[in-house]
């Protein structure tokens, strides 16, 4: 066998894995590319016509797009805040307490994750209509729906962090003269906080990106995904790709920044261990 053959044999899985990863990035490349597309000359919006900075310089040109972005961000923030608080409390109850109805609650929390969005969306619409709110769909009904489907994900995320917490740490704090509140705020909360933060990020991205449930509960209100959906019927403005690329870069930057910081902290650890 040749050296190349051996190399491929040894690295087959990682090569295939990287190919899959590449496949996952194709749309992102296209989106980034199209954000520089000069679409002013042609109506065929699914072809690259020419390079321009215009889309990046005037991101709010398309009518209603930035307004829809603002709506999505406010709903996302509000849904994140409420669902994170409610979900974190529930996670504490489930991990730290044995109470009647606990297993029922576990099931109820699991169900929204196992239900197709179309069923949840349509059932909410059915409820709002049956309750006579059919004419008042909008910001508040979207928010209610988003909080609902975010809660389960928050609970799952916080619960796993809390479950991994060594309960001896709290006992040690009590042994060292910290009362219940001090133990909670000085030991439990700081240690669970990364889990809460991760849950909040997840909730925000779920809410921000949701289309199906939002579509059923939005009435006349337009969120960013709904704007994209509506635009897709006529021809998507290239600025949508600018927003898509921007979101990707911001998120990636945040993740890399966090990783670099934790690596820096870990470096001393490695030195001490060796």
């Amino acid at each position: 066998m040749t050296r190349l053959g051996r190399w491929v044999g040894k690295h087959l899985m990682i090569t295939l894995g990287l190919l899959v990863l590449l496949y996952m990035y194709i749309p992102n490349f296209i989106v980034a590319l199209m954000s520089f597309n000069d679409a002013s000359q042609s109506r065929n919006l699914y072809q690259f016509q020419g390079f321009t900075w215009d889309n990046w310089l005037n991101p709010c040109d398309p009518l209603g797009m930035c307004e829809s972005l603002r709506v999505s961000i406010s709903i996302g923030l509000a849904a994140t805040l409420v669902s994170t608080i409610i979900g974190t409390l529930a996670a504490f109850a489930l991990v730290r307490h044995r109470f009647e109805g606990r297993s029922t609650m576990n099931l109820v929390l699991f169900l929204p994750m196992a239900t197709p969005e179309i069923v949840m969306g349509s059932s909410l619409l059915a409820l709002f209509v049956a309750a006579g709110f059919g004419g008042q769909l909008g910001f508040w009904t979207i928010l209610i729906a988003h909080i609902m489907f975010c809660i389960s994900f928050v609970v799952v995320t916080v619960r796993s962090r809390l479950g991994g917490l060594d309960s001896n740490l709290e006992k040690a704090a009590m042994d060292l003269y910290a009362d219940e509140w001090q133990t909670f705020w000085r030991i439990t909360f700081p240690l669970v906080f990364p889990g809460i933060l991760a849950a909040a990020l997840l909730a925000f991205s779920l809410s921000f990106d949701d289309f199906i449930i939002t579509n059923f509960t939005s009435g006349q209100t337009v969120t960013f995904p709904m704007f994209v959906w509506g635009a897709a019927q006529r021809g998507v403005p290239m600025q949508v790709n600018v927003i898509g690329t921007l979101m990707f870069l911001v998120a990636l930057g945040a993740v890399i920044g966090g990783e670099v910081m934790s690596r820096r902290r870990a470096r001393g650890r490695v030195r001490a261990a060796s």
């Binding site: 060594d166 001896n168 740490l169 006992k171 040690a172 042994d175 003269y177 009362d179 240690l191």
Partner: peptide, 19 residues
Amino acid sequence: KPYKRPVNTVFQNYALFPH
């Protein structure tokens, strides 16, 4: 209560506060 006793413990796996 544990925090009112003149007793302290060295825990089995130390239970040092990691943060």
